[in-house]
């Protein structure tokens, strides 16, 4: 900007940027926690029918339950206290990391959620890896000749993947790979093979967007002035790719992985239910079904915080990849 004050080099305060990222995401995490808690709480307050009755039924079976058993459950869970006290207590407990006990299994929620979180993280990590390998690979191939046959194939792929909901994709994979070909177990949790179908379902679903962003980024970067200059400087093509194209394409791609986190978590809920994978999504759908409020709150909270965590990692990666100062508005 300042030609006349020639030759002053401004060093970007990286540490300041780092602090800003962490503060921003920390604040977001806090907001998410409060929002989810209040939403959950409202849900419970307006539950039609008697939650306690339903829980008691869950415990003892519908035939054996009576008003007395329901009242016992109500007292045990503190559902007879005033609404605002329940909310205040829950928020207070939350910040002490005391999430209560499951209304159904009576085990501490922290324990249950810890177990399910591990399952979800495994599934999410493998799916993300599949999405990046398939998506980035297809994107790079499509970018080699924009408008060429590979490019058109990739475009069709992206649209079809976007149009098919994960549960349908999962069903199709079950039909093809499990029922027809008998290659893989369809449901269950355990053994390396059982993760393949759910992870493939999620990974293929995500790969569409990854492929499109990668393709656009690579095409744009390869046409950029700095890549052309790197070539005319005399740098061999291989090194132009490694040193300039990959990094700059990643600068565009990585923030979108943050946006993907939301889609990933949505997919997790569905795919876990479909394949009975022991994860947070599966647990949450069960909790909704059984009105197990503490587990519902905890799983919703952890899922939402997972998104914030992924976005924090994305922000840090972008900070590392791209030295330019920026506004934190790209990712979710």
């Amino acid at each position: 900007m300042a030609d006349h004050r020639a030759d002053v080099v401004v060093v970007t305060p990286r540490r300041k940027e780092l602090a800003r990222v962490l503060a921003h995401r920390g604040g977001q995490g806090l907001g998410v926690a409060v929002l989810v808690s209040v939403l959950c709480f409202l849900v419970v307050r307006t539950l039609p029918g008697d939650a306690a009755y339903r829980i008691a039924a869950g415990r003892y079976g519908y035939d054996l339950v009576d008003q007395e058993a329901a009242d016992a459950v109500r007292a045990e869970l503190g559902l007879d206290r005033p609404a605002w006290r329940q909310l205040a207590d829950w928020l207070l407990d939350l910040f002490q990391l005391d999430l209560g006990r499951s209304l159904v299994t009576s085990r501490p929620v922290v324990e249950e959620v810890g177990y399910y979180l591990l399952g979800t993280l495994q599934l999410a990590a493998v799916s993300l890896a599949i999405a990046i390998v398939i998506g980035a690979g297809a994107g790079v191939l499509a970018a080699r000749r924009p408008g060429g046959p590979m490019d058109r194939l990739a475009t069709a792929w992206v649209a079809s993947v976007r149009a098919v909901p994960p549960f349908l994709l999962g069903l199709l994979l079950v039909v093809v790979l499990s029922a027809q070909l008998g290659l893989l177990p369809a449901v269950g949790h355990g053994g390396a093979a059982s993760i393949v179908l759910p992870a493939l379902t999620l990974g293929i679903g995500l790969s569409g967007l990854v492929a499109r962003i990668t393709r656009d980024a690579v095409v744009e970067v390869r046409a950029s002035a700095y890549v052309q200059f790197a070539q005319t400087k005399g740098l061999p093509e291989r090194w132009v790719l490694v040193r300039h194209v990959v990094r700059n394409a990643a600068v565009v791609l990585v923030p979108y992985l943050g946006v993907q986190a939301v889609i990933l978590i949505e997919g997790v809920v569905v795919v876990e239910s479909l394949f009975s994978w022991q994860g947070l999504g599966h647990a949450m759908v069960h909790a909704v079904f059984w009105r197990d409020v503490p587990v519902l709150q905890a799983t919703a909270l952890v899922l939402a915080l997972l998104i914030v965590a992924v976005n924090t990692l994305v922000d840090l990666a972008v900070l590392w990849l791209d030295p330019r100062p920026r506004r934190l508005e790209v990712a979710a």
Binding site: Q28, G29, V32, L35, V36, L39, C40, V43, V262, I263, I265, E266, V269, V270, M284, V285, V288, L296, A300, L303, A304, I307, V308, N311, A332
Partner: peptide, 11 residues
């Protein structure tokens, strides 16, 4: 923005 649509709908 950090809460998936599906989660809100589920809740």
């Amino acid at each position: 923005v950090a809460i998936p649509a599906l989660l809100v709908v589920l809740l």
